[in-house]
């Protein structure tokens, strides 16, 4: 075990002698405190003036941007829904108006038709009445002629039978008597 001794010589004890232990060397405290004060003060100043405001600004910007975008999206959605409702309403209104218009047109046409038919029927009735009146008049005239024809025929028959012409009045009376039966 000769070699391990030389090897161990390179691994000295963990504890240094108190005075040589660097962290407890009072002589270095002055420099360390001075430089710590300087560097930490500089760090604090740069942190509070530059870095922290910038970082918080970035995060705040993002937060407000996201919130703003969400708000705009919500507004757009509300507008879209509103537009949809307005469309539905307009559609329903238009449908209602179209129905009313159709109904009105139908009613008007029906009324016109009824009026025309009534007028036509009235004219037809008048024509019918006229025609009937004319027929009646013709019939009466014809009947009047029938009496004259019958008298003439009766006078001619009597003349043929008796050889003498009968009195005109007697024939007319006799025909009138016969026709009255």
């Amino acid at each position: 075990m000769a070699q391990p001794i030389t090897a161990h010589a390179e691994v000295p004890g963990i504890e240094g002698e108190g005075a040589n232990f660097p962290p407890f060397d009072v002589n270095t405290f002055g420099s360390q405190l001075l430089w710590l004060a300087i560097t930490f003060a500089v760090l604090y100043l740069l942190m509070s003036r530059v870095i922290v405001p910038r970082l918080s600004g970035i995060l705040e910007d993002r937060r407000s941007r996201i919130a703003g975008d969400l708000r705009i999206a919500a507004e757009s959605k509300a507008r879209a829904e509103e537009a949809g409702e307005a469309y539905e309403k307009a559609l329903a209104e238009a449908r209602g108006r179209a129905q009313a218009l159709a109904q009105e047109t139908r009613d008007k046409l029906a009324a016109e038709t009824a009026e025309k038919r009534a007028a036509l029927e009235a004219e037809l009735a008048r024509n019918l009445a006229d025609a009937e009146a004319r027929i009646t008049a013709g019939k009466e005239k014809a009947m009047g002629n029938v009496e004259a024809i019958a008298s003439d025929a009766a006078a001619a028959i009597v003349e043929r039978l008796t050889g003498q012409a009968p009195a005109r009045d007697a024939v007319a009376t006799a025909v009138g008597k016969a026709m009255a039966q």
Binding site: N27, T28, G30, S31, Q32, L34, W35, T39
Partner: peptide
């Protein structure tokens, strides 16, 4: 003693 050290 004040100095610019390796710590600084």
């Amino acid at each position: 003693e004040i100095a610019f050290t390796n710590s600084a």
